[in-house]
Design a protein around this nucleic acid. Structure first.
Lengths: 209, 209
DNA sequence: CCACATAATGTCAGTCGCTGACAATGAATG
DNA sequence: CATTCATTGTCAGCGACTGACATTATGTGG
């Protein structure tokens, strides 16, 4: 084999993640000790902290890989695209990761919603992702402050799209994401009393200029 | 007097905040213990944790008051305004708080930038603020998902505006904020190769439609 | 001036998150 | 079978944070 795998720790890692998710869901985050998670996974507390930097981190693991994929997609986006189109294109490129991780991220969502400490960590991960996206956009010629701004707006649109995808199975993630970006674009316009574009108006017209 | 003030704890509170800010700046966050902060303020570690929920919270105190003021401004905004104009109007209404708190927030900024744990807390506070803004927008007839989306985008624009204000003293916060919202609006448009509005192009023309 | 009520603080013991150091274990290689 | 090396177990210890109870300082009423 390629790499050494003396007592393979990858299974232990996954086992710890699922054990933590279940315990947090059943007993609550604060009421679950790190030793409890380790015990349920059949290892020691010390081993837990060798796999994860801290107790919160056990629920946020794929983030680094996702960030890598997303920033790579940004680099591969057509050079003619402006930053906004680049982001929509890139989120579409990595949509498979959303789909694959859904079995873990969807139940995780409820645990996070019930735990301030985990919401904090989730935001920190988002911030880290935005930082990386900003760098990738800068490589495309966007200034740093503008790249940071558009990265945050794109992240807001993406979150909106994923939330809609979770609730509405009648459309794929790609369509939800495209509609989310369109909605974000419309909502950030200066005009008066524009609250009539509320519901699910399916207008898949291509991106006009 | 109105309220009882047996051993007035407000001075202790302020004293703890400034002691923490200085120690974090000079010695670093991780290298500063809660007992150190308390000692510098002339009290006990236990007293520190009576005033602040945890070690990080000592740097984020005015957040609740700011959130209160901002959401109130949203409620007072002209009813004809759409959500985007409402946010710009409301951030302008509370700009005095930005100015008043600058002596504390500006040095704090560098401490946060050097401390991941504090960045995490800052993001959590922002998230809390966005949640309150979302609720206030919902009261104006915006649907919850859309309100959340526009609240995040407005927050991104606001951060951009404040950062520009910190760096450029030639304009007031109000003008910086208005330009930030305009820039956000333009950046979230779908078009190709729109990266020529990069640098400091001073275009103080009023918000056209 | 002296109780008295009240709120802030001090003291102490204890749990939990987390880490460094060192020994022990199990799988692959020769 | 011996070696190697990554993973794990064990243990001691620090810092963050909390509950319980005693203590101090302030303002009030007699």
């Amino acid at each position: 084999m390629n790499e050494a795998m003396p007592r393979n720790g990858e299974k232990v890692r996954k086992s710890l993640q699922w054990a933590a998710l279940e315990l947090f869901r059943d007993r609550g985050y604060e009421e679950t000790t790190a030793a409890d998670i380790a015990a349920k996974a059949g290892v020691t507390e010390r081993t837990f902290f060798r796999h994860f930097a801290d107790k919160r981190d056990v629920l946020f693991d794929g983030e680094a890989a996702f960030s890598e994929a997303l920033t790579q997609a940004i680099r591969n986006a057509p050079k003619a695209f402006g930053p906004w189109d680049t982001l929509l294109f890139s989120f579409g490129s990595v949509k498979q990761m959303f789909i694959d991780n859904r079995p873990f991220t969807e139940p995780r969502q409820y645990v996070i919603a019930a735990t301030p400490a985990l919401q904090e960590r989730a935001m920190a991960k988002t911030r880290s992702l935005v930082t990386n996206v900003t760098s990738a956009l800068c490589e495309r010629g966007v200034s740093e402050p503008e790249a940071n701004l558009v990265a945050w707006m794109g992240m807001a649109a993406s979150s909106y799209g994923v939330a809609a995808w979770f609730k509405d199975n009648s459309m794929g993630l790609g369509e939800h994401m495209a509609q989310a970006f369109e909605k974000a674009s419309r909502l950030s316009q200066s005009n008066f009393a524009t609250t009539k574009t509320t519901a699910t108006s399916s207008e898949p017209r291509a991106r006009g200029r």
